[in-house]
Computed example of a mutant assay.
Amino acid sequence: MKQETFVQRHQAEWAALEQWFDARGGSARKARAHRREWQGLSDFEMPGRYRRLCQQLALARRRGYSAVVTDRLQQLMQRGHGVLYRTPAPRWRRAVEFLLAGFPRLVREEKGVMLAAMALFVLPLVAIYVAIQIQPDLSSALYDPVQLAGMEDMYDPNDPQRALGRDDGTDVAMFGFYIWNNVSVGFKVFASGLLAGLGPILALASEGIRAGAVASHLQAVGHGDPFWRFVCGHASFELTAIVIAGGAGLRLGLNLIAPGQRRRIDALVEAGRRGALLCAGVLAMLVIAAFIEAFWSSIGWMPASIKYSVAAVLWTAVFVWLLAGGRNDLYAEQPA
């Protein structure tokens, strides 16, 4: 093939690559800011385009094309190499980027199982709460008298100087306890997905019934104000994390019983991989919840107005993070 024909055939490709490098190959922050305005090559096309460029450079050299052509292709190849093979970000930065963008994007990709998990948790919670408000004696069928007395003592409104919702342990000791307890619940809900999907259903429903029963009993006996002041802050992270863990468990169970066109083991491995990523985010949420629970929620003297205002901010932050996090990420999945 003559050089003129070669250049004419591939000129548009090279121009498109140059435009991408100029607009997208520099600052990642700037590229994310203008991502929606970009009309050129898709980011996901670049690995294939780069391989094709390397082939064209090899052909140009082998055929003895002029230095004008080979130098241009060499420069494009070097620019592409600098973008595609640059040193990856430090581990801590990649972890932060995953939590801020990758994790909420993964949660949205599993919207179906997440909504199902939320229903399995919230509906039993609301049902048992209403039932105990109508018939307070129902709480005795779920907890023995010693447990009920212990709950009432932890949230006694006549002892305002006492740390809410716990014994006399230090903040640091209780922080460790809350982490262990929260992570145990989250792992149980997720891992139960291996029981053909039945495990997360039972685990989510039981957690919802437990939370609803405790809240309703304390409200019914007049201890509701200390209880709500205690749980309102950390509940945004803790309850949402449990629902996400349940959604990951449901995905595990669905892939196990309905692998579709894939082999069952392949579907299970894929669900396990995605579940592990989701559980990494769930772990971070539960640690945050434990920190809030140990160092903020237990403060008994704090006015209710401040507690509820902070809780409203935390709930809003969690929803905005999960619904909007990662939407402007440079390498977020783009619609076909």
Rank of each mutant, 00 (worst) to 15 (best):
S305D: 13
L76N: 03
F175V: 00
V320W: 04
A116V: 14
T316A: 11
L59A: 14
A119G: 01
E152R: 12
R274H: 15
R263I: 10
A290V: 05
R263M: 13
Y155E: 08
R52Q: 14
D171P: 02
A58P: 04
A280Y: 10
L99A: 12
A58F: 11
Q78G: 09
A89S: 10
L100M: 13
A12V: 05
S184I: 00
A16N: 04
A16I: 04
M285W: 09
A280P: 01
T170N: 06
P88N: 02
A116C: 12
K188M: 14
C232R: 08
I299G: 09
L120C: 05
N181V: 01
S184W: 01
A141N: 13
L195D: 11
E293C: 00
G193H: 02
L254V: 15
S216H: 08
A101D: 14
Q334M: 11
Y178E: 01
F21G: 06
A294M: 03
Y155F: 09
G40T: 03
S305M: 11
S184T: 06
F21L: 07
A205G: 05
V122W: 03
A304M: 07
S139Y: 04
A280W: 11
R29D: 11
V320D: 07
T70S: 07
P124E: 03
V113F: 12
A196M: 12
Y129E: 09
G193I: 03
V7K: 08
S216N: 02
S66L: 05
G40V: 05
R262K: 14
V113M: 11
M46T: 03
L283Q: 01
Q74H: 12
M151P: 07
D156W: 15
E293T: 07
G176R: 00
V269W: 07
A211S: 13
K30G: 13
D225I: 15
K2C: 15
W14E: 05
T87R: 15
V7N: 10
S298D: 00
W315F: 04
D168S: 12
F177L: 13
A12Q: 12
L250H: 06
R36P: 15
A127I: 01
E13P: 03
I257Y: 09
G112I: 12
E270G: 06
P303C: 00
F21M: 07
G249L: 02
A67D: 13
G82H: 05
P145I: 09
M285T: 00
A23C: 11
L17T: 07
Q3D: 10
R24Q: 06
A12Y: 06
A311K: 02
R105W: 14
I128P: 00
L202C: 10
L195F: 00
I242F: 12
G199P: 08
A163I: 01
R52A: 13
E97S: 12
G48Y: 09
L142D: 03
A60Y: 06
W315H: 08
V126N: 02
R274W: 15
G25T: 04
F177C: 09
G249A: 05
Y50C: 11
M174Q: 10
F177G: 11
G300N: 00
Y178F: 02
